[in-house]
Design a protein around this nucleic acid. Sequence first.
RNA 1: GGGCCUAUAGCUCAGCAUGGAUAGAGUGUUGGACUUCUAAUCCAAUGGUCAAGGGAUCGAAGCCCUUUGGGCCCGCCA
Length: 628
Amino acid sequence: MTFKSIIDEIENNLYKILNDLNVDKIFFSVEPAKQGFGDVSSNISFLLAKKLKQSPQEISNTLSKKYNQFNHTLVSKVEPHPSGYLNFFANWEKLNQLILSESNLDEFGCVDLGKNSTIVVEHTSVNPNKALHIGHIRNIIVGDTVSRILKKSNYKVNVLNYVDDSGLQVADLLVGFKFLGFSQTPPKGKKFDHYCGDDVYVQTTKKYEQDSSLEDIRKKVLEELEDENSDTAQLADKITGKVLENQLETCWNLEVNYDCLNYESQIIRSGLWAKIFEKLKEMNLITFEKEGKNSGCWVIPGNGKEEDKVLVRSNGTATYIAKDIPYAAWKLGLLEDPFNYKKYPKIQKESQTLWQTTLGNSTETKQNFAGEKVVTVIDSRQARLQKIITTLMDNFKSIEGAYVHLGYESVTLSGDTAKKLGIDTDGKQAQMSGRKGLYVNADSVYELLKNKTITETKKRNPEMSLSEIEKIAHQISVGTLRYEMIKQDLDKIITFDLEKSLSLEGDTAPYIQYTHARASRIIEKSKQSPSLDIDFSLLIDQNELDLVREIGLFDIQVHDAGKNLSPKVISRYCHDLAVAFNSFYENVKVLEINDIALEKARLCLVYSFKITLERALNLLGITAPNKM
RNA sequence: GGGCCUAUAGCUCAGCAUGGAUAGAGUGUUGGACUUCUAAUCCAAUGGUCAAGGGAUCGAAGCCCUUUGGGCCCGCCA
């Protein structure tokens, strides 16, 4: 049991008291208290004030007296506060034991939101024509972190990456290679994805402005892409395959894995669209326009003042959104699966198998990556389209809310950083643009961070081997980048600045990782080994109790994060844990205190902190070194 | 014109879902703490008409309405 046990005990008893007083059920709060107001607080008296025609303070008085008549093992004192709040003080000897014991279990922090059901998380989904930039990284890290939190919340999670390998952006790349004479070999030392994005794509799109005849070529290339046997499609497969591999390397380096890759080209060739189209017609969800501006088109009628959305053009071809509908339905398992599955040839971290769809034969057994629920991570500029898909899916599937669009605001570049990249915005932040070449590559951010952290680590550990320094620097760099991407709410724009965003101090991953290193060193240096066979009543210092309490809040935070699909909840929790530990570290000595029993008790607490922080950081995809 | 998001300390952000106590962090500035379990740390000072106005409430940063500033979206492009 965790801190939640004392909350549950109080809640139960308060309900019993209400019953005694013959008061209707009300929903009061019982929450961890603010600093200086005991350990747990309830607002129950405010809510009763009107009903009982008494002041909150009087009610708190009554309730605190009554509370003592009920069974309570975890509460040592109830105190009515003059403000009206009812404050509870914990029996820390018991709570210490409960929380510290529980924290040693592997399943500590697990909650049961999913009831072992299956959920799909789709994220990344970048056109395979360029390297990943810092904006894509927000999507990837949000998606990966949410996946990890959902796993901890007892969902079986299938992580998908949709590869847009047949759109305009790919066609543009092919125009560059086939007609503008770009070599298929990048300059020495440059990754192929960087070369495609930085050079071929940017320069090709620039040429469109100068030479309008290229537009026809582009159109032709796009058409040829549809025929999988054409030379163009074969070349596209080769090039997008290489870019995709480079992109995946970037993701894997950031500790992000996937379960399956879905290719847009295959969705199109699979015939899923025709099936969904029939279904939409049968269910009367779309209409054929006989007049007006959309004459001759199949449209999804807009709600109220919303514009109708064209699904099938008057020439019979399907629009962009028409590719997303079958994919959404496929993810929810609403369609017969037309795909076979084969293994992606490269190995992911922890040797997790990465599958990919194929329309050809496969010797592998059929896989199933559909879920009862689906979370699609796409930035909120696509909110309108996603809303249409969500509504359609609600019509298809009986469980309401089965399809969720998890939106987030974009990453922009600070005025300074944009200027460094050659665009003067008058100090204002700037939207990134792949076409204009205005972006910061994820790989280069990682490299910058790594060089910085190598220098810092060397400074502090001059005797350390280079390989060890590299390993630590990697952990800190990945941590820093990942933490930056999720520490604020999804609806806040992240303004990325090459200087400021790479800080290693303050509310950053290294701050948190550092507390882990401190804890590790204490454990390493102690002659005792951490154990639960200790006298729990020895932990009485406020700094100790605050730390125990913070550890005990883990499952409550996971529940919050999982329920609201909110990664930042966990990043804040990690930060709070670290703050509590630093405060403990400054004020409470563990080693050389000439009291073995006390050292053992504190060591148990330090160990408990260390493994809880590791588990919480693991939800963020961050590992903490033992030394740094 | 319609829709979505946003406004809290000089700057970057928590808190808002579920209204209640003294509105919290980081950063910045100023000062202090390393012969100590690692100073990527800690402590102190500084800093707020919670965008503005109205409403409902015993009580609003939070709920409702209006206004304003900022961002994004609204193609038979993807």
